[in-house]
């Protein structure tokens, strides 16, 4: 079976699309045939972050409504092999997504031999978010070190274990916590919730910490997922996250303030 992974958060603007783009690219770079689906119907953006916005002809809703075949709608990624993007519709609303329609697309992707299906969830807990998580085997819960994001993540964790297909079969969705936009300097000065604080509150296994980084904006400006920027801290942190997801043991990085030479001598 294809492994279906939802990238979700509840709160908006925390880095779901950035993460979906980096994650799917990282999986494909390692040879896995991967599809990444934009569930944000009406507010398509994954195409821009993946740099394929000018090649969108058909979208996810067209496939659900049998107005196009899956093969017609899937966009082959230009950066890495094995990666395909299924864009969201700009013109429909989220009611176009139904459990039957989404389920049929998942089955077809499986038949096409996809190893991974990454679902980029919209914000909120309404239909779009519900449909994005419905068939998930795994959930990457994206959380910023900030009160409303942590609270919304807890809300989403509750929904994952009650409203999904797996939950209804009496099974569980595997949960992975991904903390993004982390600023070690602000954590150290006590202005920002630390990774340990968030873990203590949410009690979900940590799969990665992505630092706040200028490279993310650069990546979205150029339409190349940040994981391709191998020199950047965020790119490296996303790469570590993908390796952990695939079962490797990789130590966490970028959690400490980089010590200045002087302090290093004094306290290091």
């Amino acid at each position: 079976m294809s492994r279906i992974v939802v990238v979700t958060s509840g709160k908006g603007g925390v880095g779901k699309t950035t993460t979906s783009a980096a994650f799917s690219t990282g999986l494909a770079m390692r040879g896995y045939k991967t599809a990444v689906i934009d569930f944000d119907v009406g507010l398509r953006n994954l195409d821009l972050i993946m740099g394929c916005e000018r090649r969108v002809v058909y979208d996810f809703v067209n496939v659900i409504n049998n107005e196009a075949t899956l093969n017609q709608a899937l966009i082959r990624d230009k950066h890495v092999e094995n990666l395909y993007v299924l864009p969201a519709s700009q013109t429909r609303d989220k009611d176009a997504l139904t459990p039957e329609g989404v389920g049929r697309v998942m089955d077809e992707l499986h038949e096409l031999g996809f190893d991974f299906i990454v679902c980029d969830s919209p914000a909120g807990i309404e239909r779009g978010a519900h449909m994005a998580m419905y068939y998930a085997d795994d959930a990457v819960v994206v959380t910023n070190p900030e009160v409303s994001s942590v609270r919304d993540s807890d809300r989403i964790l509750g929904l994952l274990q009650s409203k999904t297909h797996r939950a209804k079969q009496g099974e569980t969705v595997r949960e992975h916590l991904l903390i993004t936009r982390y600023s070690p300097a602000r954590v150290q000065s006590g202005e920002m919730l630390s990774m340990e604080d968030i873990l203590e509150i949410l009690a979900v296994p940590l799969i990665g910490v992505i630092p706040e980084s200028q490279s993310v904006l650069q990546a979205s400006n150029s339409g190349a997922p940040v994981i391709l920027d191998k020199a950047s801290d965020a790119g490296q942190a996303y790469d570590d996250f993908v390796r952990r997801f695939l079962g490797e043991t990789v130590p966490h990085r970028f959690l400490e303030v980089e010590k200045k030479g002087f302090f290093k001598k004094l306290f290091g």
Binding site: E146, V147, V150, R151, V187, S189, G190, E191, M192, L193, S194, D197, E200, I201
Partner: peptide, 11 residues
Amino acid sequence: AGSAKVAKERL
């Protein structure tokens, strides 16, 4: 130690 402590307790 700043507002993060308060944030954690409230959460």
